[in-house]
C-alpha cells in the first residue's frame, strides 16, 4: 500500500457521518493492488459518547479507468447489506455516498476487516501460499462460503440487485451479450475468434437448473484471512445471477492453483473441492457445464482486458498494467480456442 495525499478534506463530513467529535484523519492509504474500484484506508481518531476511539474505516470509490467500465457502486453496497443478513462472511458496510462532490466520485464506507489477503498473479505460476496448519480450516471456510453464496435466498432478500434475468438459460445469454457489447465498444468484437466463440456459446448454452448468486471473482486474493479462518469475502464487483458452475469453473481455473502441487486456490485438490462442495451444497457438479462456463469466464476476462486496452489507448488510464492487459488478449484467445475445441468435441 502506498500513502496518498488527498486534497479533499473529509474531516467535517466523516464527523457528521460517524456522529463523532474532535475527529482527526491521521492518514489515508490507498490500496495499489486493486484493478477496478479504488480502496482507501482512513485512519481516524475521534470522541464518541465520551469515549476516545481510534479506528480504520475503508472507503471504496468508483473507478475512473481500469478494467471495469464505470458502474454503480451503490448496488454493491445494497448487495453486501443483504448478504450479511444472509449469514455470508462479508465486510460490514457503513453507509453509501452517491454525491460525487464529496470525494471526487461516489463511494461507500465499511468497517476494516483485520487479516491478510494473499494475492497471486494469474499470468505466472505461484509458490504455495498459506501454511499447513491453517490450510485445512481455510479450505473448509472457502467451500462453506461459496456454498452459502450459491444457496442464498436472493428472491426473498431486499438487495434489489442483481436483476432477475428470467428463466432457463436467459441469464447466461444476457451475460454473454453484456460482455459482447463491452468487447464491441472496446473495438475487439471484429476479431473472428471472438465472433465465432460468442456465437457458439450463445447457440449452445446449457439450461440453468438453479439460478443463484454468482460471486464472479471467488478466488485466492479475494478473501481476508486471519488465524486460519476466512474473515471476509471481498471484491463483489462482478456479482450477478447465474449458474453456480460459473463460479466453480473459475475456482478450478489453473490461474489460481499453486505451481507445484496444483492445489485449487492453494487450499485443496480438485477432487477434494468438488466432493466437499457437492456434499455441502446439494448441487451436483456437471463436467460439461464446468467446461462451458470456463469458456464464459474467458469471455468475461476478454471483456475486462479489452476494456483496459481501450482505456489505455484513449488515455483514460495511465496504469501500465492496463497496457499489459491489452497484450493478454491474445493469450485469452488461445485459451478460448482450446475450450471451444473441447466443447465442440464433447
Amino acid at each position: 500500500m502506498e500513502p496518498e495525499t488527498q486534497a479533499v478534506d473529509l474531516t467535517a463530513y466523516l464527523s457528521e457521518k460517524i456522529g463523532a467529535d474532535n475527529l482527526v484523519v491521521n492518514g489515508i492509504t490507498k490500496v495499489e493492488q486493486g484493478m477496478s474500484s479504488e480502496t482507501f484506508f482512513f485512519d481516524l481518531s475521534y470522541t464518541k459518547n465520551q469515549n476516545e476511539v481510534r479506528e480504520e474505516i475503508v472507503i471504496k470509490r468508483e473507478p475512473s479507468g481500469g478494467i471495469l467500465e464505470t458502474y454503480d457502486l451503490s448496488k454493491e453496497f445494497r448487495l453486501l447489506n443483504s448478504l450479511i443478513a444472509g449469514g455470508i462472511t462479508v465486510p460490514q458496510v457503513l453507509w453509501n455516498e452517491p454525491d460525487a462532490k464529496i470525494f471526487e466520485r461516489p463511494f461507500y464506507a465499511m468497517k476494516k476487516v483485520e487479516g491478510d489477503v494473499f494475492n497471486v498473479d494469474p499470468r505466472r505460476p505461484s509458490k504455495l501460499m498459506f501454511n499447513d496448519d491453517e490450510r485445512p480450516s481455510l479450505a473448509g471456510d472457502f467451500v462453506s462460503n461459496i456454498v452459502k453464496i450459491h444457496n442464498f435466498d436472493w428472491k426473498n432478500s431486499d438487495m434489489g440487485f442483481p436483476a432477475d434475468p428470467g428463466k432457463d438459460n436467459e441469464a447466461v445469454i444476457r451475460q454473454i451479450e453484456q460482455h459482447e457489447q463491452a468487447i464491441d465498444r472496446a473495438g475487439y468484437r471484429s476479431l473472428p475468434i471472438i465472433a465465432m466463440s460468442i456465437n457458439w456459446l450463445k447457440q449452445n448454452s446449457p439450461e440453468i437448473d438453479r439460478l443463484s448468486i454468482v460471486h464472479g471473482d471467488y478466488r485466492i486474493g479475494n478473501f481476508i484471512s486471519k488465524g486460519g479462518r476466512i474473515q471476509a469475502v471481498i471484491d463483489w464487483e462482478m456479482c450477478h445471477l447465474g449458474d453456480p458452475h460459473e463460479d466453480l469453473a473459475y475456482i478450478l481455473s489453473p490461474a489460481w492453483r499453486s505451481a507445484d502441487e496444483g492445489l485449487v486456490n492453494h487450499l485443496m485438490t480438485e477432487g477434494e473441492f468438488i466432493k466437499k462442495y457437492q456434499e455441502m451444497s446439494g448441487i451436483s457438479v456437471d463436467p460439461y457445464k464446468l467446461l462451458y462456463y470456463g469458456g464464459i469466464n474467458i469471455i468475461r476476462g476478454l471483456d475486462l482486458m479489452c476494456t483496459a486496452a481501450k482505456n489505455f489507448t484513449h488515455g483514460q488510464s495511465s496504469d501500465l498494467r492496463d497496457g499489459i492487459h491489452a497484450m493478454t488478449v491474445d493469450f485469452l484467445l488461445e485459451a478460448l480456442m482450446g475450450v471451444i475445441t473441447m466443447l465442440t468435441a464433447s
Binding site: R123, R124, I193, D330, L333, E334, M337, T341, T344
Partner: peptide, 18 residues
C-alpha cells in the same frame, strides 16, 4: 475452428514469460 486454432498456435510463439 481449425483455421482459428492454427492462427492462435502461431501467435503463441510471440509470447515471452512474464
Amino acid at each position: 475452428l481449425s483455421l482459428l486454432r492454427q492462427l492462435t498456435k502461431k501467435k503463441a510463439g510471440l509470447r515471452v514469460p512474464t
